[in-house]
C-alpha cells in the first residue's frame, strides 16, 4: 500500500509531468487561456492516459516482449494511442453525447500530446506491474490536470494586467510557467 501512496505523490507533485519532466507543453500553452478549456483538456487527458497506460502495458508484455520485438515499441505505442483516441471518440459520440460535447474537441489533440506517449514509455522504463502502471498513469494525468488548471487561473489574471508588447502571449506564459515550476520545486525533498 505504501508504495502506491509514494507513487501517487511522486507522480503528481515531485515529478510533475508538465513542470518537472517537460512533457505535454504544447497543449499546456495552447489551451490554458480559459478555465473551461483547461478543465476539459485535463479531463480528456486523464481519461485517455489511464486507458493508454493499460493498453500499452498489455501490448508491451504480451506482444512485444515474448517475440523480442521491443524495438518496435515507439511505432506500436503511437499507433495504439492514435487508434485508441479514435475509438474513444467514436464511442463517446454514439453512446454518451453529453460527455462527447465536453471532451470531443480535445480528443484529436491528445494523439500528439507527448505527455501520453511519454508516460507510457516511462511506465515501461520503470518496469511497473499492471496495477502500478494504472496508478502511475492516473497520477501523472492528475498532475497534468492540476498544473494546467493552476496555470489557466493565473493566465486569466494576466489577461487583465498590462504586459509589455514583446512579452505578450506565449512569452509571458513561459515565464509564468517557470515561476509555477519553481513553486513545484518545493516538493522535491518530499520523497527520497
Amino acid at each position: 500500500m505504501e508504495s502506491y501512496i509514494v507513487l501517487v505523490i511522486s507522480c503528481i507533485f515531485v515529478n510533475n509531468i508538465l513542470l518537472m519532466q517537460y512533457l505535454g507543453n504544447c497543449p499546456f500553452l495552447g489551451v490554458s487561456k480559459r478555465m473551461e478549456t483547461a478543465v476539459g483538456m485535463a479531463m480528456a487527458v486523464i481519461f485517455v492516459l489511464v486507458m493508454a497506460g493499460a493498453v500499452t502495458w498489455v501490448v508491451n508484455y504480451y506482444i512485444l516482449k515474448p517475440y523480442d520485438l521491443e524495438y518496435l515499441r515507439t511505432l506500436s505505442f503511437i499507433l495504439v494511442i492514435a487508434s485508441l483516441v479514435q475509438l474513444v471518440e467514436m464511442f463517446l459520440k454514439k453512446n454518451i453525447p453529453a460527455l462527447y460535447a465536453g471532451l470531443g474537441i480535445y480528443l484529436p489533440l491528445i494523439t500528439t500530446n507527448c505527455a501520453v506517449l511519454g508516460v507510457c514509455l516511462i511506465n515501461m522504463k520503470e518496469e511497473y506491474d499492471f496495477i502500478h502502471t494504472l496508478v502511475s498513469s492516473f497520477s501523472y494525468a492528475a498532475g497534468f490536470g492540476l498544473a494546467l488548471v493552476l496555470f489557466a487561473a493565473i493566465r486569466e489574471r494576466i489577461l487583465l494586467a498590462r504586459v509589455p508588447k514583446p512579452l505578450q502571449d506565449t512569452s509571458i506564459g513561459l515565464v509564468t510557467a517557470g515561476m509555477l515550476s519553481l513553486a513545484f520545486f518545493g516538493f522535491k525533498g518530499m520523497i527520497h
Binding site: L19, P166, T170, I172, G173, S181, F185
Partner: peptide, 21 residues
C-alpha cells in the same frame, strides 16, 4: 539548468525574438 530556468529562459528568448518582428 533546472526546469524553472528552462521555462523562463525560453520565455525571455521568445520576447527578444518578438522585438525583432
Amino acid at each position: 539548468v533546472k526546469a524553472p530556468g528552462a521555462f523562463v529562459c525560453l520565455g525571455l528568448m521568445l520576447c527578444i525574438m518578438n522585438m525583432f518582428k
